[in-house]
């Protein structure tokens, strides 16, 4: 019989790996940002699982700060993405290979 904490940690690890895979293999910048969100969600899941397992509030409080960081990240990322698309005319990450320095 598998433990609930073990199951949730396994799920968090799988989701983190899938997010990492998306960051590495997808060409579309928007989907790469979505994959980053998948990784953040996996971290949130591991914190909540640990909080429920140890019956402490620390993990739950930490997720609040992850939400704040995610909100800042997405606000900046979307602004930068629109700027990049205006300059390069594409969302394709392969188009950024001409960067120098």
């Amino acid at each position: 019989m598998i433990d609930r904490y073990e199951l949730l940690l396994a799920l968090a690890v799988a989701l983190f790996a899938m997010g990492l895979l998306g960051v590495m293999v997808r060409r579309n910048l928007l989907v790469v940002i979505m994959s980053l969100e998948l990784m953040l969600n996996a971290v949130v899941l591991s914190f909540v699982a640990a909080a429920a397992h140890t019956q402490t509030l620390h993990g739950v409080a930490m997720t609040f700060f992850i939400y704040v960081a995610a909100t800042c990240e997405i606000a900046l990322a979307m602004a930068l993405l629109v700027l990049l698309v205006r300059r390069r005319g594409t969302l394709d990450l392969a188009a950024g290979q001409e960067l120098r320095g």
């Binding site: 293999v25 060409r27 579309n28 910048l29 969302l91 394709d92 990450l93 392969a94 188009a95």
Partner: peptide, 10 residues
């Protein structure tokens, strides 16, 4: 109509 919509993976 972006190119990254047609080719998903790098």
């Amino acid at each position: 109509r972006d190119t990254s919509y047609r080719q998903r993976f790098s």
